[in-house]
Simulated assay, not measured.
Amino acid sequence: MNVNKPEQTNRDPIVYDSVDTDDLESFSCASQGRQPYVDLPRIEKAVREILLAIGEDPEREGLLETPLRVARMYDELFAGLHVDVRDVIKVFHEKDHDEMIMVGDIPFYSMCEHHLLPFIGRAHVVYIPQGGRILGLSKIARIVDVMSRKPQLQERLTSQIADTMVEAVRPMGVAVIVEAEHLCMTMRGIRKPGSLTVTSALRGLCKSDARSRSEAMSLLNRRRG
């Protein structure tokens, strides 16, 4: 493929639908047998103070273990702050492969940094390999997982996925679309359940070359549709 003017090809891009993330390692410290990433006692104390501040009794039966449960939950939900994404990436070499690859419908859960409420959605990733460098399919899902497990903005998450792909495999182009429902819009404020926020990030040929951009966006939109 000519970098400045990509060749037309009769071969279809490789498309992988609905990534199964069951094989991904859990970020739970209990399941991994690791030490907690976060300061559990400090979070427990803070949650207890919040319960008191809203007028609840942290000593009643239903709330006795809530501070510890929340602390353990935060250890899992914010594990991405403490994991180096490079440690979950594995690059393979497939000689002369330079056709588009798409992995779609990657589910994720993240926490909006403004209200610490979840936003839940799916990510779709397209890239054009260069030099035969191919990323293991589950590794793309791992990138999404690591980047989403921290206080986030959807716009930043989308860019971080794209930039990590660029750093990992140095492709000719990358396109990422993320669509999510934000519970800060569903549970509070404007209260519009079902509203989806869609963000995109384009890198390399997927941004600079009209033909590559059109092909990538066609794949992404077809998958989303």
Results as ranks from 00 to 15, higher is better:
164 T>Q: 13
29 C>N: 03
176 V>Y: 14
55 G>L: 00
204 G>I: 04
223 R>G: 02
5 K>Y: 00
83 V>P: 11
87 D>Y: 05
222 R>F: 02
189 G>T: 09
43 I>T: 13
90 K>S: 08
121 G>F: 04
147 M>C: 14
170 R>P: 00
190 I>F: 10
15 V>W: 08
109 Y>G: 08
123 A>P: 14
133 R>M: 09
46 A>H: 02
89 I>M: 08
177 I>H: 09
107 P>M: 06
94 E>Q: 13
113 E>S: 15
212 S>E: 06
128 I>H: 05
23 D>M: 12
76 E>R: 11
126 V>W: 02
73 M>A: 15
156 R>C: 09
88 V>P: 05
51 L>I: 05
80 G>V: 03
127 Y>H: 11
166 V>Y: 03
94 E>F: 09
7 E>V: 13
214 S>T: 08
39 D>W: 04
127 Y>N: 09
24 L>V: 11
33 G>D: 08
26 S>P: 12
31 S>T: 00
180 A>S: 14
221 N>R: 07
47 V>K: 12
202 L>S: 10
189 G>Y: 08
15 V>F: 10
80 G>E: 03
199 T>C: 13
103 V>T: 03
161 I>K: 13
162 A>K: 09
201 A>F: 01
42 R>E: 02
103 V>C: 07
115 H>Q: 05
12 D>N: 15
